[in-house]
Amino acid sequence: MSLRPPQPHLATQLRAEAGARLVLRGVAINALLAAVKFAGGIFGNTYALIADGAESLLDIFSSSLVWAGFQVAARPPDANHPYGHGKAEAVAALAVAGFIFAMAGWVGYHAVHEIITPHRGPAWWTLLVLAGVVVIKIVLSRQMAAASEEAGSTALGVEALHHWSDALTSAAAFVGITIALVGGKGWEAADDWAALFACVVIAFNGGGMVMKAMGDVMDAAVAQTFENEVRSLALTVPGVIALDKMRMRKSGLSYLVDIQIRVNGSLTVRAGHDIAHAVKDALIASARHRISDVTVHVEPAD
């Protein structure tokens, strides 16, 4: 028999569902952009746009992984996963980062091939396509970054970086094609060099994404300022004299807290329990901190 998820996990579920909807919108936009880029690359004779189109196809697949991660992360705790399924979100982000590295290698290999293979220069109108792509990708990146900050989502943060790297690669292609058009004969490979430069940018961003996702998977410590805020909140609970140890870890879209409080040593067990419960309720009730579970250990102050 399944139990109704407690309120903090319900809030996590709602954040996961909102993130999944935003990712699906990005998938639809990437599908449209991929078609436009491939058409522009083939008919405009520019490999930079074809490489950009291939990246958009990979974006669709990687975004689908993020969407699947959100679907799993939205599930409430169960007998096999008492802390919930939040880690699925970080695992999905890690998988996407891996695909980004693979994409950088694929694009780089083919860019080198195009550089050493003589070919015609790109068409001028491909610049219009790239300009539109850059604008769309910057808008998507900002929306994803804002949603990531609001939901505390590593996967959405990775998606935001992914869209930003797309904007950078398209901008590099724009510069390369412009150089090829202005330079004329002998500069046909400028857009291919731009695609090669884009690979470096993609790989660099991929490294940042891996570190961020690995931090969640390996239960890295939260920022000290964030921990201090939670400590201050716990100290406002009546009956809490001091705090000893506190550990926090991120689990998907929420945080898990282990905290040790000190209370008056002459209090009864019942009174100490009530204070501990009040601390737990206060931390979970703080929507800003997105805490889904708290374990409180009580120690006498004297």
Rank of each mutant, 00 (worst) to 15 (best):
A194D: 12
G19P: 12
V257D: 09
V129S: 08
A97K: 02
Y47D: 09
V279P: 05
I259K: 15
Q71Y: 12
V91L: 11
R75K: 07
D293Y: 14
L283K: 14
H81P: 00
G252D: 06
G19W: 13
R15A: 10
H119E: 08
M209W: 00
F38V: 01
I291D: 12
V222F: 08
D216E: 06
L233C: 10
M218N: 14
I100N: 01
W106L: 15
G19H: 12
G183Q: 15
I202E: 06
A194G: 15
R290N: 10
E299C: 09
M1G: 04
Y255F: 09
L283T: 13
P6T: 02
D78W: 06
L32S: 05
P77M: 02
A271T: 08
A145Q: 00
A111R: 06
S62Y: 05
G41A: 05
S64G: 09
S286L: 00
N80G: 11
Q224K: 12
A131K: 00
V279G: 03
Y47W: 09
S292P: 14
I138S: 01
E159Y: 10
V210F: 11
L243C: 13
Y109N: 14
V133C: 10
Y109W: 15
A171N: 03
V210H: 10
S232F: 07
I116K: 02
T12C: 03
V269N: 11
A146P: 05
G53W: 07
R270N: 11
S254L: 01
I50Y: 02
S141E: 07
D216I: 01
A160K: 03
P238D: 13
N228Q: 09
I291E: 13
G132E: 05
A20G: 13
G108E: 06
Q13V: 09
V135A: 10
A145C: 01
A172F: 11
L161H: 09
R262D: 10
S2I: 08
G19K: 12
V66Y: 09
V269S: 12
F99S: 05
V96S: 07
A11R: 06
S62R: 04
A16W: 07
N205L: 01
K280T: 02
K185T: 04
Y47F: 05
A11Y: 01
I136N: 04
I42E: 11
A195Y: 05
M144Y: 15
R75W: 00
G84C: 01
K280G: 03
A131Q: 00
I275D: 03
D293G: 14
E149A: 08
A220T: 04
G152H: 06
V139K: 02
K137C: 04
K280Q: 08
G152A: 01
F174G: 11
F101S: 11
F174V: 00
Q13F: 08
H273W: 13
A160I: 03
K245P: 14
L22C: 07
V129M: 08
R15V: 09
I202H: 02
A278Q: 10
V200I: 09
L22E: 04
P238V: 12
N205F: 08
Q13H: 09
G265K: 15
Q7N: 03
I177V: 01
V175G: 03
R231H: 12
P5T: 11
C199W: 14
V182N: 11
A16D: 01
T154A: 07
I29V: 06
V294T: 14
L127R: 07
